[in-house]
Amino acid sequence: MQVTIYRYNPDFDQKPTYKMYDVDTSKVHGIMLLDVLEYIKANLDDSLAFRRSCGGGVCGSDGININGKNSLACITPFKELPEKVTLRPLPGMPIIRDLIVNLDQFYTQYNSVKPYLQTHSNPEKEHIQSIEQRDKLDGLYECILCACCSSSCPSFWWNPDKFVGPAGLLAAARFILDSRDEEKESRLKDLDDLYRLYRCRSIMNCTTVCPKGLNPNAAISKIRDEMIKSKTTCTEPHHEHD
């Protein structure tokens, strides 16, 4: 297997280069692309830098661009890839070193939607939530913040400081649709903005690449629906008088 990897070390590189590694995959312990990267680091070149942690697709560390498509190295079987593979850091993000990108902007947008439950009540035991109410969180709470979606989104490339991006909006939807949350209106108001929400043009790259099979685009549609419902409710008296 020929693995070509984007290399850049800010300590001494003026500009990035690509380096090709010839890997005998019969020597690789494991079946995933991450195992190939581990093999390269342990046996061929310990200066190759990439993030990884759980190795099972739940921690979201090893999002990279594999032959042009973002995914997690740890759940990409290398046998399903062509003989020649090119690995790049997630696009549209500042590069720290090799396959490691700076995700500060991504996290800032996530934080901006106040991704925590806001309630004013304090029940004696747990909040009661029906199975149906809880079902609404499925497909939203499972996000692992790997950034594969936001870094494949042209709207986010263009306005990373203003557009919340698919991951942040998925988190917003997770709280807007949580029956326990009591700040739905203020959450919607915060997103009712040309950039924060409405820069989403339904390009769908987010949904295509999500390694967890989530659908940020559908989540964004749900926020839009809630936005319309909320506005209709507010303006209803006017309609009646018209």
């Binding site: 925590y116 439950l117 309630t119 304090n122 029940p123 035991k125 747990e126 909040h127 009661i128 939530q129 029906s130 199975i131 109410q133 809880r134 969180l137 709470y141 709280f175 949580d178 326990r180 949350d181």
Partner: peptide
Amino acid sequence: LELEKMGMPFSRDENGK
């Protein structure tokens, strides 16, 4: 119960607990 109040998305039984 404290985790639930923090927003942890526990699965629910028929009684909503």
